[in-house]
Amino acid sequence: MKSIKKVYLENLNKTFVTTANDQVVAVNNINLKIEPGEFVTMLGPSGCGKTTTLRMIAGFEMPTHGNVFIGEENVATKTPDKRDTAMVFQNYALFPHMNVFDNISYGLKIQKRPKAEIKERVERILKMMKMEDFSQRVPAQMSGGQQQRVSLARALVMEPGVLLFDEPLSNLDAKLRIHMRDEIRKIQQKVGITSIYVTHDQEEAMALSDRVVIMNAGIIEQEGTPQEIYQRPVNEFVANFIGRANILDGEIVGIDEGEVIVNIHGVGFTVKVYKKFDVGQRVRVVIRPEGVLVGKKDFTVKVDKSVFMGQNHEYGVDFFGSNLEISENNPTGKTIYKIGQQMGIGFDQQALHIL
């Protein structure tokens, strides 16, 4: 494998001009550093700019302005074939008339590599992907998951400095998606290649990534580890986009070293904080459904929804006129509350986060 490259996006912008001559800013002056060997996922709703950003890294779109560094080289104006990248596509993009060996070796043949080298590299990748027995099959003889592995093998065999993924699992069924995302992560860690992955699937992003980049309306809202993004969202958009979030009103009533006491409907909770707050300040507080504790006596609420989901029990309750979602883990042997019943609840103080 050739040297693994870092990626640096500097003031990257892409503006499209519509048929009505209006300007649409798809990517709005973003800056992002990706370390060598890091797996970074760009996550966000449709139209947020994540795919356009990936296409600018690959060279399929040219920036309106800004720079794309792969390693030390600014490739912003270079065509895809002049960049040290390889792409794994959503629709596999395999040649239907070629067998697996020929599909994987196609790029190496274009580069006019020696036949012996091509054979060695393709056979090595097939072994890594556990697909040695598939080399003579054509795409029509394989499942979607097998085709996606061939698509990944074709990218890896080029030994790129950076591997790019454009929603590669979106055409697979739910069970196969989970299996394939685990395979992709395992192979990426084994090879150690810098990887940039675009998806709108939150679970995929959490399972695959060293770092998640949340995009919205062409800007980066937050970047961090999956744990940081989930547990310490910077704003309501991120809190609502990653997982489920209950967002409550509170007031700061006390301050201590690195902690505050926040009053939520008359009950005080001690919360660890990462920025400065003032006594009397009104704040918004995030609590995930699994951070709501059933059976506590802090609040009494009425159950509006009660659904058994196997590994957890989902409740929706009326919390001072707003809906509060609760997810109680491992409900076996616990009291199950029915719609209309009163329930006592509290909040896990470690799960509270002030925006």
Rank of each mutant, 00 (worst) to 15 (best):
246 N>T: 11
61 E>I: 15
178 I>C: 05
116 A>T: 14
189 Q>L: 15
121 R>P: 06
316 G>R: 05
219 I>G: 04
152 L>M: 15
111 Q>M: 13
199 T>R: 13
136 Q>V: 06
103 N>M: 12
81 D>S: 13
353 H>P: 01
115 K>N: 13
79 T>I: 14
47 G>Q: 10
297 K>R: 12
160 P>L: 10
119 K>S: 14
321 G>H: 13
19 T>Q: 15
286 V>N: 13
61 E>Q: 15
61 E>V: 03
160 P>G: 10
86 A>Y: 03
285 V>F: 02
171 N>E: 10
214 I>S: 06
251 E>D: 02
72 E>I: 02
13 N>M: 12
68 V>D: 00
312 N>D: 11
52 T>S: 15
101 F>D: 10
265 H>T: 07
330 N>A: 03
307 V>N: 05
287 I>W: 02
263 N>Y: 04
309 M>F: 03
170 S>E: 09
293 L>M: 12
211 R>M: 06
47 G>V: 02
23 Q>D: 07
3 S>L: 07
149 R>P: 06
22 D>T: 13
318 D>K: 13
95 F>W: 15
274 Y>H: 11
135 S>R: 10
102 D>P: 06
245 A>V: 09
275 K>C: 01
145 G>S: 03
108 L>A: 11
277 F>I: 08
181 R>Q: 11
290 E>H: 05
232 R>F: 09
336 I>M: 08
277 F>G: 00
